[in-house]
């Protein structure tokens, strides 16, 4: 805690590493959730209510030093991609009962400010600087999981929460970023995890992969989901502790059906 107050606001909570060849800089910032005033400002700016836990000052960034190109993950831009209309809006499990019970009651007006309150986002990071993302295939530009699986020393590691909402105790929505930097390569994973109890389980991953010696960044976006009951059934069949497993995106991920899988690449000058 001492670091937060003592330092100047600009570098409070900031950690950074530059790769040995001086080409890539990885930076994270972790601070407490926003206070009421910035929350209101953010809500006003992007036009939807803000998740209960909003780490609006946090980010994780990869920067290519020679050209100044960067990709960054932050809560503001992720929330800006949440549906601000009724489109794609989910309903909690007990919503049907509610409808029946409230029919004919005049005192309650319409649904307040409809928006995707599950905070599902297809955010793939915010890029800045010269360089175009080009769609490719996993075969042509693979994220080398074989090399990433080697126990190379981890020179830098961080896990950064961007936002979380308990969905009024109907589950969890969580967007967080992890990054690890090894001597020759790095991997950043931004994961959106949604568990809406009795309704749906959803994972949306964005992986960013860099070989330090190259000038190429590979980005893979994978969206997966499945009905809540199906996931529960599969966990039970595997003998897993169901409630605990349902809190762990890593356990649940292999049980979901892939909806979208896109690989892109950017060549930096």
């Amino acid at each position: 805690m001492a670091t937060n107050g003592a330092q100047s606001p600009s570098n409070a909570g900031v950690q950074s590493i530059t790769t040995q060849n001086g080409a890539w800089r990885i930076t994270t910032r972790k601070l407490p959730i926003l206070k009421a005033e910035p929350i209101d400002a953010l809500s006003h700016e992007i036009g939807i209510p803000i998740p209960e836990m909003i780490f609006g000052d946090n980010y994780a960034t990869i920067e290519y030093i020679p050209s100044g190109w960067s990709i960054s993950f932050n809560a503001r831009d992720a929330l800006d991609r949440v549906s601000k209309t009724e489109e794609g809006m989910l309903q909690v499990a007990v919503a049907e009962d509610w409808k029946k019970d409230r029919e004919g009651r005049e005192e309650v007006k319409q649904v307040v400010k409809p928006f995707d309150w599950s905070y599902s986002t297809d955010y793939r990071g915010t890029t800045a600087g010269k360089g175009e993302w080009v769609e490719t295939t996993h075969e042509r530009d693979p994220i080398r999981t074989d090399l990433l699986s080697r126990p190379d020393p981890i020179l830098f590691f961080d896990a950064v929460d961007l936002y979380e909402d308990e969905l009024a105790d109907n589950g969890i929505a969580l967007l967080s970023v992890k990054v690890r930097v090894m001597p020759e390569r790095l991997l950043m994973l931004s994961r959106f995890f949604l568990r809406l109890d009795g309704v749906v389980v959803r994972i949306r991953d964005t992986r960013v992969y860099v070989e330090h010696g190259g000038k190429k960044v590979v980005r893979q976006y994978t969206a997966k989901e499945a009905a809540y009951e199906d996931v529960k059934e599969k966990l039970r069949a595997r003998g897993e502790h169901v409630t605990e497993a349902l809190r762990d995106a890593n356990v649940v991920a292999p049980l979901l059906r892939t909806v979208t899988d896109v690989t892109e690449v950017v060549e930096l000058g």
Binding site: A95, R102, E107, A168
Partner: peptide, 21 residues
Amino acid sequence: LWSDPDEIEGWGLSPRGAGFL
């Protein structure tokens, strides 16, 4: 046990489909 105050007029139904504001 569940409802929340909000900057609205009167009563509102939460976008979640359950719970009042």
